[in-house]
Amino acid sequence: MNKSSRILLIEDEVQIRRFVRQALEEEGYSIVESDTMHKALEHLQETAPAMIILDLGLPDGDGVDFIRSVRLHTDMPVLVLSARSSEAEKIHALDNGADDYLTKPFAIGELLARVRALLRRNKTDAPNLEASYRFGEIEVDLAHRQVTRNNAIVHLTPIEHRLLLTMLSNPGKVLTYRHLLRAVWGNAHAESNHYLRIYVGRLRQKLEDDTTQPKHFLTETGIGYRFQP
C-alpha cells in the first residue's frame, strides 16, 4: 500500500466527507476535500492526487462532465459514489471513464477495499502480456494462450479466451456490457448482452468453484462485470 497516496474527495455532504476522510486517513492516505466541482478542478491541478472519489450528485454541475475532463489529461482512478436505483447513471459514469462505483450507503471496509484495488491497479497497470498471470488456482500463460487450473489444462474457445484477457487486463474495474461487447465481439454485437452473459457463464463454469457464488468473475447487476483477482 502506498502510504503517501493523496486522494481527492469530492462530496458536498460534510458528514460523509468526515467519516470517509477519517477512514482513509487511518489507512495512511492523505485527503484533499472539495465540496464543489469548481474547487475540485483547482485542487486537481495544485495537488496532483493519485485518485479521485467523486459524488455524482454535486450541486454545481454534472459529475460525468468532470470525469470526462479529468480523462482528457490523466488516467488516474476515479471511484464514483452514487445512489441506488440509478443504473443508467452509473453506466453513464463508467462509460465516460469512471473506474468503479459504490452505492450509498456503503460500508467503510468496502470503500477501503475498492480504493486499495484501484490504487494497486494504477501502480502495476495492466498485467504484463509477455508473462503469465495468476489468480486463485488459475494460471494464464499469456504467451502460449494456455490456461491451467490446478495445473490441469482448461480448454477455452477463442471468444472465451478474448473475454478472459479483456477482464484480466482490467482487474478491480467495473466493465460495462457495452465495453466488454465492443472489446470482445467488436461493434457487430454491441446490443447482444445475452451473448456476453452466456460466455461469462461459461468462463465461470470452467474457472470458478461455484458458478452461483463466483469469486473472480463478479456480476454488477444491470451494469456489467468486474474481475476480482
Partner: peptide, 14 residues
C-alpha cells in the same frame, strides 16, 4: 433520505 442514511450507516460503521 439516502443522504442521512449514508451518514448514519457510515458513522456507525466507523
Amino acid at each position: 433520505i439516502r443522504t442521512p442514511l449514508t451518514i448514519l450507516y457510515g458513522m456507525a460503521d466507523t
